[in-house]
C-alpha cells in the first residue's frame, strides 16, 4: 500500500472544481456551466506517479492543467509542499513555476518550428534569467544527453525529427528548470508502440534519477498501469476510484473501473474474456445527472436513491478508495462501506 514518503505531500488538491461558464442569449448571460472538474481531492507523494485515466471528456486534462495553474480553478485549493498556491498571482507564481512543469501530448504542436532545438531547450533559462551563455550552452548539452538526443541535434529544427525524438525535446524543455513534479498529458499516445516504450523507459529512468513526481494522464490503461504507483479513475469530473495500481487492476471495486479494464484489448488470442459492454457515451458535463453519474448510464435500479446522496470516496481497504455509490459497487462492498458510516445514507 502507498505510504507517503514524507509527511508533506509534494502536491495536494482539495475539493478542486473547474467550471467553464456556458453563455447564451443576446447579453451572453451565464446560463450554465461545464463542470469539467467537479470536486477532486488528491495527493501526490515525492517520487510518486499518480495515473489519471478515464474516457475523453472526463476532465482528466482539465484537472492536469488546473494543477499546474494553467487554468484557474473555480473553487477548492491546491497546495504545493504545504503552501497554498491556488490563487497566487503570476508574479508570485513565477519563481514556483520552476518546480512544476508539463509535458504535452503532441510535441509537434507544442514546439515552435522556427526555433532550433538549442533555443527551444534554452528558452526556460532565458525566461528565468538563469546563467550566462556559456553555462546555458553546457546545460542544454547535458539535458539533450540526459533525454537521449545527440549533441548534433541541438542545431537542428524540431520538424526534422520523428515523433519520438520530438517528445524527447519536449521532455528536455520540461526538465530544464529541474522541476520537482510534472504533469504528463498523454505523452505517448501520438507515438508508435516501439517508440512509446522508449519514451516510457525514459520517463521512468528520469523519475528514479531526479526523484520526480508525475501526474500521468493517459487513456491507455496498460500504459498508465505500467508507469503509475497509484491510479485515479475519473468519470464525469469526479474521481470514482483511487488505489495502488496493482490493487486497482487486480481488484477493481467500481463498476466503471471494471468496465474500463474489461474493454482493454489483450494482445493474446488465447485469452477470451467476457467484456462488459457499456451502453451509450459519457453524459454531458453541462447537465450531469443529479445522482450517481455512472449509475445513470447503467440505468441502475438504485439510481433514485443516489440523488442527494453523498457519493464521496470511502476507504474500502487500506489505501483503496472508491465512491460510496450503491449503483456501482458489489452488494457486499456497499454494505461494508455504508455500515461504517454511522450517519444514515
Amino acid at each position: 500500500m502507498f505510504e507517503p514518503v514524507n509527511d508533506l505531500p509534494m502536491l495536494k488538491a482539495e475539493d478542486l472544481r473547474v467550471h467553464f461558464p456556458v453563455r447564451s442569449g443576446v447579453f451572453l448571460t451565464q446560463t450554465g456551466a461545464v463542470k469539467a472538474v467537479d470536486g477532486v481531492s488528491l495527493e501526490l507523494g515525492v517520487g510518486e506517479t499518480l495515473g489519471l485515466v478515464g474516457e475523453s471528456g472526463c476532465g482528466k486534462s482539465t484537472l492536469g492543467k488546473a494543477l499546474v495553474r494553467l487554468l484557474e480553478p473555480t473553487s477548492g485549493k491546491i497546495f504545493f509542499e504545504g503552501r497554498d498556491i491556488t490563487h497566487l498571482k503570476q508574479g508570485a507564481l513565477r519563481p514556483l513555476r520552476r518546480d512544476f512543469q508539463m509535458i504535452f501530448q503532441d510535441p509537434a504542436e507544442s514546439l515552435d518550428a522556427r526555433m532550433s532545438v538549442r533555443s527551444l531547450v534554452e528558452e526556460p533559462y532565458r525566461i528565468h534569467k538563469m546563467g550566462n551563455r556559456v553555462e546555458r550552452k553546457k546545460w542544454v548539452d547535458d539535458l539533450l544527453d540526459t533525454v537521449g538526443l545527440s549533441a548534433a541535434s541541438a542545431e537542428r529544427y524540431s520538424f526534422e525529427f520523428s515523433g519520438g525524438q520530438r517528445q524527447r525535446i519536449g521532455i528536455a524543455r520540461a526538465l530544464a528548470l529541474k522541476p520537482k513534479w510534472l504533469v504528463c498529458d498523454e505523452p505517448v499516445s501520438a507515438l508508435d508502440v516501439s517508440v512509446q516504450s522508449q519514451i516510457l523507459n525514459l520517463l521512468v529512468d528520469l523519475q528514479k534519477e531526479f526523484d520526480l513526481s508525475y501526474v500521468f494522464i493517459a487513456h491507455d490503461l496498460s500504459v498508465v498501469k505500467h508507469v503509475s504507483d497509484r491510479v485515479a479513475v475519473m468519470y464525469l469530473g469526479k474521481i470514482v476510484e483511487l488505489a495502488t495500481s496493482e490493487s486497482i487492476y487486480k481488484h477493481p471495486k467500481h463498476a466503471y473501473t471494471k468496465a474500463l479494464l474489461s474493454a482493454v484489448p489483450v494482445a493474446d488470442p488465447q485469452v477470451k474474456r467476457e467484456k462488459i459492454l457499456l451502453e451509450g457515451d459519457v453524459p454531458s458535463p453541462i447537465d450531469p445527472p443529479s445522482g450517481s453519474a455512472f449509475g445513470h448510464r447503467l440505468r441502475h435500479r438504485r439510481y433514485g436513491e443516489t440523488i442527494g446522496m453523498d457519493l464521496a470516496l470511502a476507504e474500502i481497504e487500506p489505501g483503496h478508495w472508491v465512491a460510496a455509490d450503491p449503483c456501482c459497487l458489489e452488494a457486499e462492498d456497499w454494505e461494508e462501506i455504508s455500515a461504517r458510516h454511522s450517519s444514515p445514507r
Binding site: S197, S222, Y249
Partner: peptide
C-alpha cells in the same frame, strides 16, 4: 506494456 507487466 500489458496489464500484466511489472510496473516501472
Amino acid at each position: 506494456p500489458t496489464l500484466e507487466t511489472v510496473p516501472k
